[in-house]
Design a protein around this nucleic acid. Sequence first.
DNA 1: GTTTCATGTAACTAAGTTAGTTACGAGTGG
DNA 2: CCACTCGTAACTAACTTAGTTACATGAAAC
Lengths: 149, 149
Amino acid sequence: MKRNSRLSSTLHILVHMAETQEHTLTSEQLAIFIHTNPVVVRRTIAGLRDAGIVTSSRGHGGGWQLGRAPEKISLAEISAALGETLLPFSTEPESPGCLVEQAVIAALDDFRVEAERLLAEKLSRITLADLAADFHRRYALIGVTSHAV
Amino acid sequence: MKRNSRLSSTLHILVHMAETQEHTLTSEQLAIFIHTNPVVVRRTIAGLRDAGIVTSSRGHGGGWQLGRAPEKISLAEISAALGETLLPFSTEPESPGCLVEQAVIAALDDFRVEAERLLAEKLSRITLADLAADFHRRYALIGVTSHAV
DNA sequence: GTTTCATGTAACTAAGTTAGTTACGAGTGG
DNA sequence: CCACTCGTAACTAACTTAGTTACATGAAAC
């Protein structure tokens, strides 16, 4: 797992979970998908459990499952549950009282609020089901190609 | 200078430069504005020079100046010249051949391309002159307040 | 031409962030 | 009880970036 790939790694995991909704997947199995280890997986998706996106159970037969249908899980929720910031820059005052800085921060904050609203809106239109459907399309295509070749 | 505040720090510097277009400002003077040191300033805005946003000159009376009128300098250009990424997440394949991952990456890349276009468009509409004007508004307001009180 | 002032840049240090790892506690079901 | 699994704390390693030091280069003043 590389830096700042938490969103894509998590989506990878979640689509696999969408593909096996009938049974649970352990942290260990999920870790294999994204080439990391079970503790990192638990830590990463702990926030998703709190948001109801996934559920976890302990003991024999325990593991992880989607908390609701993939159609009802948007990328916006996932991103928010991961605690990811959509915009990377900060605007904390460093020279309190400097009017130039205040003007800069005001402009950037306006931009950020608007931008985050836009991005969240876009992400809210993409669901896990969409990703799963695209996966199925690719899977079918490979099958056809295999037959053809 | 804190983490990821390069954009706001740079804007801070640039607005100060817009306010003193008649003469140059040294790295040392600029460093004081953002509470850091001259080398960090030079390193940070080196990219802006390459982009023509600022010019630098050495020796006696040397220093930094805007490369063109503040009306002609947009935040989009500044952000690009700083090498800042507008979106923080990466989508590098980590499991080549995994169709689930391919579907995830395709979706995120589509989103990113569209999002970056949107954000760049928004930033291109804000110029240094806008920030300077807002600064003047704030300055005038303080003046009025001072008279009133 | 020497001195002074300024940028350009390399090299190193310190601090902060995050993934990875180890270890162990706490539920859960056979 | 035992095997399995998550929950979580604590530590390590790698990486990133701001800060710093040092020095070369260039330009103006004298």
